[in-house]
C-alpha cells in the first residue's frame, strides 16, 4: 500500500522547468529518500507536497485521494533553511507551532516538556530563541517537526549545516519515527545518508525521476559485475586489462566494473598475482553514488558528495 503517490508532477518557474513530469510512490511505514544534486528539483517537489507551491500539472495523492490541508495537519516539515521567531520564548514557540497544526492543551504541553527534557533544554524553556546556540535552535526545530505526532515527517536536506551530535539525534529520531510506523520522506544530496537510512528512494535529475524503487532492489540490480575494492599498492595495470569495463575512484575505495559476471574471479586472481594488498574485496557491491553517477552522467559526480565526514 502506498501512503503517497506522486503522479506526473510538473512545475515551472518562468522558463525554468523545476519538476518535469515526475512520478513516484512512497510506501507506508518506510524511510523514503528523494535524491539528487543541488538544483535537481528536490525542494520544489517537497514544497508541492507540503502545499507551499501549487503544481502546474499532475497531482499528489494521499492514500488514494487528493492531498490538502489534511496532509499539512498530519505531517511535520523541516525545511532546509530553518528559521524561528528570535524573540519568542522556547515553550511559546513549540506550543504555537503545535497550535497551527490544530494541537493544543495539556497533552501537547506534556509532550513539549518530554522532548525538551530529552534534549537537555528543559531549563531553557522560558529563554528566548535568540539566546539559544545554533545547535540548540536546531533541536527546537526537530521538536517542532514531531511535537504534534505527525504521521508523515518531511525533511528537506535535513543534515545540511548540522554538527555531528545533532546529526545523530536526528538520525535517531528518524529511526524512532519509523519504528512507530510513521512515513519519513527526506531529500538529500548526500548519498551516504540515503544509503544508510532509506528503504525506498527516488532519484531526481533536471526535474525528472531517473530511478525509483526499494534501495535493496536497486542495488542488487546495479551491483552485479561490480566490485568495491580497498587495497594498498598499484592497480594501474587494470586499465589495460580487457575484462575491466570501468574504474571509479572514491578516495578510500575503488569501484570496479567488469564486463561479465564471471570476470570477478579473474579480477581477484589478477590482483593477487600483481601483489596488491587487498584489505576489502566486496563483490556485487555498488554504492548509491556510483549508481547515480552512472545514471546522471559524468558531470553529476562533481556535485554529489559521496562521503560525508561525520556519518
Amino acid at each position: 500500500m502506498n501512503a503517497l503517490e506522486v503522479v506526473n508532477l510538473t512545475k515551472t518557474f518562468g522558463a525554468i522547468v523545476a519538476v518535469d513530469n515526475a512520478s513516484f510512490e512512497v510506501p507506508e511505514g518506510c524511510i523514503f529518500g528523494l535524491i539528487g544534486r543541488n538544483g535537481a528539483g528536490k525542494t520544489t517537489t517537497i514544497r508541492i507536497m507540503m502545499g507551499i507551491y501549487l503544481p502546474d500539472g499532475g497531482e499528489i495523492k494521499l492514500r488514494g485521494s487528493g492531498i490538502g490541508q489534511e496532509f499539512k495537519n498530519r505531517s511535520g516539515y523541516l525545511p532546509e533553511e530553518r528559521g524561528l521567531y528570535k524573540r519568542m520564548k522556547v515553550m511559546d514557540t513549540l506550543l504555537y507551532f503545535a497550535e497551527i497544526k490544530g494541537k493544543t492543551g495539556k497533552e501537547i504541553e506534556r509532550r513539549a516538556e518530554y522532548y525538551l527534557k530529552r534534549f537537555d533544554l528543559f531549563d531553557r524553556r522560558l529563554s528566548k530563541i535568540e539566546d539559544l546556540s545554533k545547535g540548540n535552535q536546531q533541536k527546537i526545530q526537530f521538536i517542532i517537526t514531531v511535537l504534534h505526532d505527525p504521521e508523515f515527517v518531511v525533511l528537506d536536506e535535513p543534515f545540511s549545516g548540522m554538527d555531528p551530535i545533532n546529526t545523530d539525534i536526528l538520525k535517531e529520531m528518524i529511526l524512532e519515527m519509523k519504528s512507530r510506523g510513521k512515513v519519513i520522506i527526506f531529500s538529500t544530496h548526500l548519498m551516504d545518508f540515503a544509503e544508510k537510512l532509506c528503504d525506498q528512494i527516488a532519484m531526481i535529475d533536471h526535474g525528472k525521476i531517473i530511478l525509483q524503487g526499494s534501495l535493496k532492489d536497486i542495488k542488487s540490480k546495479y551491483a552485479h559485475q561490480n566490485v568495491s575494492l580497498e587495497y594498498s599498492g598499484d592497480i594501474s595495470f587494470l586499465e589495460s586489462t580487457p575484462i575491466i569495463d570501468k574504474i571509479s575512484d572514491f578516495g578510500n575505495s575503488k569501484g570496479i566494473r567488469v564486463k561479465k559476471p564471471e570476470d570477478i574471479q579473474s579480477l581477484l586472481k589478477l590482483l593477487v598475482d600483481h601483489n596488491v594488498a587487498i584489505t576489502k574485496f566486496n563483490a556485487n557491491e555498488i554504492s548509491l553514488h556510483e549508481i547515480f553517477v552512472e545514471l546522471a552522467g559524468g558531470d553529476a559526480g562533481a556535485s554529489i558528495e559521496g562521503k560525508a565526514s561525520h556519518v
Binding site: M50, I52, R82, G83, F97, I100, Q141
Partner: peptide, 16 residues
C-alpha cells in the same frame, strides 16, 4: 524578517 529567517516556510507547511 519572516521571509529572511525562512520561518515562513515552516509556517506555510501548516497554514495557507
Amino acid at each position: 524578517d519572516e521571509k529572511n529567517s525562512r520561518i515562513v516556510e515552516i509556517l506555510l507547511s501548516s497554514v495557507h
